[in-house]
Simulated assay, not measured.
Amino acid sequence: MSTSATVVVTGPEGTNFFDPRLIIGPMQVGALVTAALFGSLVIQSYIYFTKFADSLGFKATVKIIQIGHFCAMISTLWTMTVTAYDDPTKLNVLPVGADITVLLTSITSFLTQASSGAKRASGSFYIYRLWRLSGNCLLPVVSEILCIAGQVAAFILVTKAITMSSFSRFVVEQTDVVLIALATRTICDITITAGVTWSLIQKRRNSIVKSTTIIDYLIMWTIENGLTTSLMTLSVMAVFLCLRETFVWFGLYLIQANVVANALLASLNRRLVLRKDRPLSDGDTAMVRSSLLCIACGIVHITPQRPIVIRVDVTHARDTESQIKTHDSFY
Rank of each mutant, 00 (worst) to 15 (best):
I255F: 08
E245A: 06
A286T: 15
P279H: 08
L22S: 09
T50A: 01
I64V: 13
A296R: 10
A149H: 00
V288G: 02
G150A: 10
L272G: 06
T108Q: 04
F49Q: 02
T222A: 08
T246A: 03
E173W: 03
Y48C: 02
R270Q: 08
S45M: 00
L133V: 06
T193V: 06
A31K: 01
I215E: 03
S291K: 09
V309N: 01
I219A: 14
T228C: 00
I65S: 05
S322I: 10
S166Q: 05
T83C: 04
F330I: 10
R306Y: 00
N258D: 12
H301Y: 08
T303E: 12
L157M: 13
T61S: 12
E144C: 08
G11L: 01
L243M: 12
K325Y: 10
V288E: 11
L292S: 01
E321P: 02
S122M: 04
A72W: 01
I148M: 04
L130Y: 12
L200M: 11
S230V: 11
L22W: 00
A183L: 13
L41E: 03
K59S: 11
T101S: 03
S322G: 06
I67Q: 06
V172R: 00
S40N: 09
F155R: 05
A60S: 15
W249Y: 11
T105S: 08
Y331F: 03
V209R: 13
A84I: 07
Y128L: 15
G57A: 08
G97N: 13
L32N: 01
E173A: 07
V42E: 09
G117Y: 15
A118Y: 13
E173M: 04
I299F: 00
R204K: 12
Y331H: 06
R318C: 04
A181F: 04
G135P: 00
T212E: 11
T246V: 05
L200W: 10
Y331T: 07
L265C: 04
T6I: 10
T186G: 05
L293R: 15
G226R: 05
Q202P: 04
V102M: 15
G14L: 00
V288L: 01
L265R: 01
A286F: 05
Q323I: 12
L272S: 14
I208W: 08
M27F: 07
F49A: 06
Q28D: 00
P20W: 10
D54I: 15
V178C: 06
S230K: 07
S267F: 01
V158W: 08
A84S: 07
V236I: 15
A296D: 08
R306E: 08
L56G: 07
I190P: 10
D277F: 05
A35C: 12
K59R: 15
S322K: 10
M164V: 03
N258M: 07
Q113M: 15
T186I: 14
V273H: 05
K325E: 07
P307F: 13
T320Q: 10
F240N: 13
I74N: 03
V248W: 09
F250T: 10
R275W: 08
Q202E: 11
R169S: 14
I208M: 12
I215N: 13
N16H: 01
S290W: 11
